[in-house]
Design a protein around this nucleic acid. Sequence first.
DNA 1: AGCACGCCGACT
DNA 2: GTCGGCGTGCTC
Length: 800
Amino acid sequence: MTIAQVIVDVPALGTDRVFDYGVPKKWEGIIRPGMRVAVPFGPRSIQGFVVDLKEDTDVEKLKDIKQPLDLAPVLNEELLNLGHWMAYETLSFKISVFHAMLPVAMKAKYEKIIRRTDNSAILLDDLFEGKQKISWKEAEKRNLLPALHKQIENGNAEVIYFVKDRARKKLKKAVRVNAGIEELEELLQTLPANAVNQIKLIQFLLNVSPDTIETSILVKEAEVPTAAINALIKKGVFSELLMEEYRDPYKHRDFERTEPLELTNDQREAMNPILQSINDDRHETFLLYGVTGSGKTEVYLQAIQEVIVQGKEAIVLVPEIALTPQMVERFKGRFGSDVAVLHSRLSIGEQYDEWRKVQRKEVKVVVGARSAVFAPFENLGIIIIDEEHESSYKQEETPRYHARDVAIKRGENHHCPVILGSATPSLESFARAQKGVYHLLCLSKRMNDRELPPVSVVDMREEMRTGNRSMFSTELFEKIKDRLDKGEQTVLFLNRRGHSTFIMCRDCGYVMQCPHCDISMTYHRSTNEMKCHYCGFQTTVPVECPECSSSHIRYFGMGTQKVEEELVKLIPEARVIRMDVDTTTRKGAHERILDHFQSGKADILLGTQMIAKGLDFPNITLVGVLSADTMLHLPDFRAAEKTFQLLTQVSGRAGRHELSGEVVVQTYTPEHYSIQLAALQDYQRFYNQEMTMRKIGSYPPYYYLALVTVTHDDLLQAVTVTEKISAFLQQNISKEAILLGPVASPIPKINDRYRYQCLIKYKREPNLLSSLRKVLEHYNKQTARDGFSVTIDINPYNMM
DNA sequence: AGCACGCCGACT
DNA sequence: GTCGGCGTGCTC
């Protein structure tokens, strides 16, 4: 008897292991590891993943698999092993990891129905309204459950559990030609002369002789009505079938084909070691450090070209917000239909279809956001992570994995190179490159030898002193007007959307806080409400101060909305277009805004994060950063690094082509090294300076981190448990490790739950993972009962 | 995570 | 005496 080992779809500690199931005779040889199956689990029926097959089992009350949910495995052997590894490293449940590796469409939905079994019981006619079955949801709504329960107990009705697969393929009609040439010619003779369309159709078949053809295409090309096709189906010339149709998000776009460009010396030098590694089938991690506009993408493209020539496949990861049509175009332009695109702005169906293209080996290249690192290729030749320093490569929910770590693991599995590309590498990666763990490749010159644009830092405190209280310094304002006169374009960057960040009473200093979270409420002008960005709590804008009843309530902090209003007031003739989460939620909005700006229909592009990347328009000659220090003062040891990276990125948007550009950076802390060195575009010095800071603070890359967060609705309880955990961990780590805590989380309360944490800094701690696992196991019992939640984040990016 | 089982108090 | 409240533990 074949036994399948199954990971069931129950994310809990007690079920995070394999369960054995019998494979029914009729599925033997069909059910294989990596397939999803429907299995009975207790009284219900749920989804599971077969991870292995074996011949016998010790389990006595063995149940059988109900049915497979896939025709072919959705996880290959490599991905299954990768899943086990990830679950171990990130302290996650295996089932959570498997779900993270697959498109959301493959996550099952469950449904229950109640069916009557005894048709003679007249009482049931009322309950079921004469029908045979009723859905659980409806029974619940109509409050029939108590009565139905009784009937279930009496054996007059039963509950049936369904596993519903959401992975629906879109199908289209097609026909297969069964008749050979002779048969067709024979038929042509016997058809009556008035069967014009059938004759036309057969002649078409004789000319083109297709094997299988989509019905709608046949109608168009043979110029016959469907009736003619139906007639031939009846005569047995065709048999009908359904073909899978891909929901192609780029269906209506033509991509202009591009040819490889001549490489610069720099690029060729960077290219050689990569090619070497590809040719030797050898895993190596490269850090491609290239200033903005130095042509990293062309290096990626040509490396991929080589990989494809060798019959292998490529994964390219790009940060979600940089995954613009412009970016996709570069890859589709070079590799055409060999490219699949995966990111969260696609619909669930589109994501599924793009993934299917990979599974069916119909593409060679995947360009996608974080989760594309799991693309089910079997013969990977290269993995590229562009903008490797981006924090969006770290997933902030379980499984809390970093795409960089996963990419390197897969690179090892496939003996292929991994390329990390950035103009501002993360300190972690650059440090590894310095140590020789990664192979450092440099592109130090911009393409077509354009100088990096000069950056001028404006001290906004000085502006204040001279009486300028607007959000634009005199220098920036003058320069914007100058560009307007010249018909050149300006990009204004502000890392904050919305209108004002908070409101404060000018008389007593009262700042409105969320009653459920320790965070100030944000003013939203469009709805004229105060909103909490953490729990979604909303309330009206106070007309007078709740503390001192003063009416001097003022709006502080600026968001993109407010800047837009100001701009329109100050320079009415300027055509401003705003780009942030609020204006890009609708599908395709992203693309429309950029097209609009590119075609010169706007003078000023005002936006957040998302305009910092990839934007490459020839007419941009001025970049303004309205407030460089918005993220500098966050309680985050990476604040300086993030500021430096962002400023460098934004600056890189100016003067990339014939026209030279310049950058104006407004700040209240012009003396800070991250702003100074970003203005000088001096990564190396920033790296040295910041490394010193990290060494002093015992932070990465000198130390690894593990963050344990405990939440509870009672403050004291949260503190007590965090103390116990800290004490336990203190005893189980070496002297070299540093344990901080318990301390309140940077946001001490979210959603009425208090948050306490303890942070472990360590260099080498082989037993840490198992100690942390013990913490989870021990407190999990309390977790459910007493309302605790304990989460562990290995190498966190977000300390909140 | 569900769901059943089982042990306690409040009621027809 | 029974209904139903939720704490406990299991699911191949």
